[in-house]
Amino acid sequence: MLREYREAVLADEDRRSMDQARVLLAGSFCEQPPLGLLRTLERAGCYIVDDDFVQVHRWITGDVRADGADPLGDLVLAYLKQGIASPIRYIDEQVKGQALVERVERSGAEGVIFCAPSFCDPALLDQPMAVAAIERAGIPWTSFKYAGNTGQFQVIREQAGTFADSIKLWSE
């Protein structure tokens, strides 16, 4: 499917990037938010250049050791030591939010949208700490919650539109 997608993208000669704000979407790590929400954000003037959707599928960074004598042990170690920084993990001695700041830099995002499902404890309890780190780094951000079962995104559309405008017009 990926291959087909890649070919289709390359075949479309008419592709051009629009003038949109590059944003990182944080807080929807448990699942993929409704497609309508993503479409709304893009139409409101944002390009989502990084996200944490379905984070469990990309939990382990790098390769798990494949030539050790204790494969189970290696799997456990990879889980413990090579896991991504996420609100759902407790990491000793971490600088909260630092990993997010680094992702912003890597992806070239111009701002962060915290977009968590309502009542998502890990995302929402974590957010003030992530926001503090983002603010220390001077990165613009905004936040809202969504309900998984809704198709109504008018308020989000307005907020995302204002945010994209403020990045495009006033960010240094």
């Binding site: 629009m18 949109q20 409101a44 539109g161 204002t162 495009k168």
Partner: peptide, 23 residues
């Protein structure tokens, strides 16, 4: 050099970029 949309113009294909109505 630029075709800008506003209002409900987010679906206009020929746009270079879109700005929110308030702005």
């Amino acid at each position: 050099e630029y075709i800008a949309t506003t209002g409900e113009g987010e679906k206009v294909e020929c746009r270079t970029g879109h700005f929110y109505g308030m702005t």
